[in-house]
């Protein structure tokens, strides 16, 4: 099996090529040098490509060594936590304007607390979620005058 070490360098190579293609598809400037907006991103993407290839070569040489860092991603309940947090964040973003700040934040914070802190401490979770959301809502919308939905 090819070592997971190569994933990152390959990812960056794709990023740089993607940017390079996007760069050459940029619209031309209507005044002055028509290519002016293109030079800088083009140079940087080519630079990123070169460095990524060097990175790839380095990792290729080290491929026999165990890939420690990425292994930790799979340990214990870490993957569940990370994915759930992101999904909750996504839901929060989607309902933010519909439910308003207060309700959505109580739900988001509550869900995160149950996820991370565990069900056994439900009382703490609920109290913290309610108090913290209320306090931050009051602080932001009343003391700081920030318009919240």
């Amino acid at each position: 099996m090819i070592s997971t070490r190569l994933l990152m360098p390959v990812f960056f190579i794709f990023v740089s090529i993607g940017f390079l293609i996007a760069t050459f598809n940029l619209p031309k400037a209507k005044m002055g040098d028509p290519n002016a907006p293109i030079y800088f991103p083009a140079v940087i993407s080519i630079f990123l490509l070169i460095v990524s290839v060097i990175y790839l070569i380095r990792e290729w040489r080290a491929k026999r060594k165990e890939d420690e860092p990425l292994k930790r991603l799979k340990a214990g309940r870490t993957p569940v936590l990370i994915v759930s947090t992101l999904v909750l964040g996504l839901i929060y973003a989607l309902v933010f304007f519909h439910l308003g700040f207060l309700v959505s934040t109580i739900l988001f914070l509550g869900a995160l607390l149950f996820l991370v802190n565990g069900k056994s401490r439900w009382l703490v979770n609920i109290v913290v979620a309610l108090l913290f959301s209320l306090a931050s809502w009051y602080a932001f919308s009343h003391l700081l005058n920030i318009s919240l939905p």
Binding site: A36, P37, I44, L48, V51, Y55, R58
Partner: peptide
């Protein structure tokens, strides 16, 4: 160095997102 340069280049590429002031062209 390698990782530092990659990190820097990604930052520079991200800085090009948005309207290009000199030409008014929208990038990425």
């Amino acid at each position: 160095m390698t990782k530092g340069f990659i990190s820097m280049s990604v930052g520079l590429l991200l800085s090009t997102v948005g309207i290009d002031l000199q030409s008014g062209v929208y990038r990425f």
